[in-house]
Design a protein around this nucleic acid. Structure first.
Length: 482
DNA sequence: TTTTGAGTTGTTCGA
DNA sequence: GTCGAACAACTCAAA
């Protein structure tokens, strides 16, 4: 009896998984396979936080299969090599997988296709990781969009995504299972010091956790999304679905349709709901950008940035930023949230990133690499597109003279300082007036709050008047008209 | 082909 | 404290 092999990559879910559903409906027994692939050339090795997430996500997915009398087979190695081994051992009728958009995806998928052709079996490729595929959203002249607003207009005018598919109820098992690694064999969890306690507290990886997150957000967060999404201290103001989307535990079109349904039932939520979907479209936009510019993770889209005068590498400066010891409370709070929970609020990501790139003049790829290692939602498309956006070298980037002021940003978006107090406890007793600029507090106020600048909390690592001007001067040198 | 309007997320300065 | 203007120039997308 031959089987339909379903290759799982960044689609670790049962519901609305077109490749899985097609395999189930093919009438063959189904062989679900996940390959931990660190060997395909050019492929980025997962960062530490992502590995933790993946471990738990795979455990959840495996449970889902077991509940349906099936199994998830785990392997390690280059995807095509592993697949070849399985084709040698098992009578496979077809290979089903979700397409990727990463720089290595086309070559990988060509390899799968060739393998299948040689074996004389079906090779079926599906979408589902985006709301809109890159082929579906083009300008009138047939080019990909490079400006978000017209992209979003085109998304809204395009055919809406298909309705989500239900999870298969019954999945037929093959007569015999090929051998599987144990989940522990994949070595996804930290070996030495266990730094994952904050992640465990903050997250529930897996399809169930993703669905719950969406339900909670639609019920209590979406209605105030526009007003509250920029306030990092407000719990539940954003969906926090990004890591679930990253691993494909929930499909974006499920989010799309559940949000549309909510709007249809309560039309007064339309503006907030559409604003949320607009953010979801930013994810598509980044993927399209990466798909059309495979160099995006490494090379500035604006080529004049090749000559940008970044500062000489300074390990101590970079380290201070990474550890949340810059002396700017909102930046430090963000960097510590990241370290503790594997996540940082979107607004704070912009502030912290702007500080690295503009006030420290450290190359955006350093920030990209750190986020890649520490974010549970680290995603090559969003990460590289967003860093380029902040640095000013992206397709639809911030203008170079827009340099975030961490004090003003803190006062505007964390007015009571609750977010800073949560992640920078050594400042928690400072009055609101100084929570974002402790260096301006009089000595007696600092003392009363138990703050000794330069001792319990760092002095600001730059004079922003100087660093801001230095950034403006640096950008001046690469202006095209110069 | 040419033209036109517009572009995620801001800050500073001076009135 | 509040407000408007300046900060630049470029190029995209569509009419």
């Amino acid at each position: 009896m031959s089987v339909a092999l379903v290759l799982f990559q960044d689609n670790l879910r049962l519901a609305d998984n077109p490749a899985l559903t097609a395999a189930v409906e093919s009438g063959h027994a189904v062989l679900p396979l996940f390959v931990l692939d660190n060997e395909t050339p050019g492929r980025w090795r997962l960062g530490g936080a992502s590995r933790w997430w993946l471990h738990h996500s795979l455990a959840q997915l495996a449970n889902g299969f077991e509940e349906r009398g099936s199994r998830l087979i785990l392997r390690q190695g280059a995807t095509t090599a592993v697949l070849q081994q399985i084709l040698d051992d098992v009578d496979v009728a077809g290979v089903y997988f979700a397409r990727g958009y990463a720089p290595w995806s086309p070559a990988l998928e060509d390899g799968l296709k060739k393998l299948c052709d040689t074996a004389g079996i079906d090779c079926r490729r599906y979408g589902g990781h985006l709301v809109f595929e890159p082929e579906a959203i083009k300008t009138q002249s047939g080019n990909p969009y490079t400006v978000f607003t017209p992209f979003w207009r085109a998304c809204q005018a395009a055919d809406p995504p298909a309705q989500p598919l239900p999870a298969p109820k019954k999945i037929e098992s093959p007569a015999a299972w090929p051998k599987s690694d144990r989940l522990e064999d994949l070595d996804l969890l930290p070996q030495g010091v266990d730094w994952t306690a904050g992640l465990v507290d903050a997250w529930s990886p897996g399809e169930g956790g993703a669905t719950q997150r969406l339900n909670t957000f639609l019920k209590s967060g979406m209605g105030h999304y526009k007003d509250r999404r920029d306030l990092p201290a407000v719990d539940g103001a954003t969906s926090r679905l990004s890591p679930h989307l990253r691993f494909g535990e929930i499909s974006p079109r499920t989010i799309w349709w559940r949000t549309r349904d909510r709007i249809a039932k309560q039309p007064e939520t339309a503006a907030n709901g559409m604003h949320f979907l607009r953010e979801l479209a930013w994810r598509d936009f980044s993927y399209h950008l990466l798909f059309n510019n495979p160099d995006l993770p490494d090379v500035p889209l604006k080529d004049n940035f090749a000559a940008f005068p970044w500062a000489e590498p300074d390990h101590k400066m970079l380290r201070a930023w990474q550890q949340g010891k810059t002396g700017f409370p909102i930046v430090d709070a963000g960097m510590r949230e990241l370290w503790q929970t594997g996540y940082m609020h979107n607004r704070v990501r912009m502030i912290a990133a702007s500080f690295l790139v503009k006030d420290l003049l450290i190359h955006w790829r350093e920030g990209e690499a750190w986020f890649w290692d520490t974010l549970v939602d680290a995603d090559i498309a969003n990460n590289s597109a967003s860093w380029q956006w902040v640095a000013g070298c992206g397709a639809d980037a911030a203008p170079y003279f827009r340099i975030f002021n961490p004090v003003l940003q803190g006062e505007k978006f964390d007015p009571g300082g609750a977010y800073v107090r949560r992640y920078v406890p050594e400042l928690s007793k400072l009055p609101d007036k100084f929570i974002h600029k402790p260096w301006e507090a009089p000595e007696d106020v600092l003392q009363a709050a138990g703050v000794a600048l330069g001792d319990t909390y760092p002095m600001p690592m730059v004079d922003r008047k100087i660093s801001r001007q230095r950034a403006l001067d640096a950008y001046e040198t690469i202006k095209k008209s110069a």
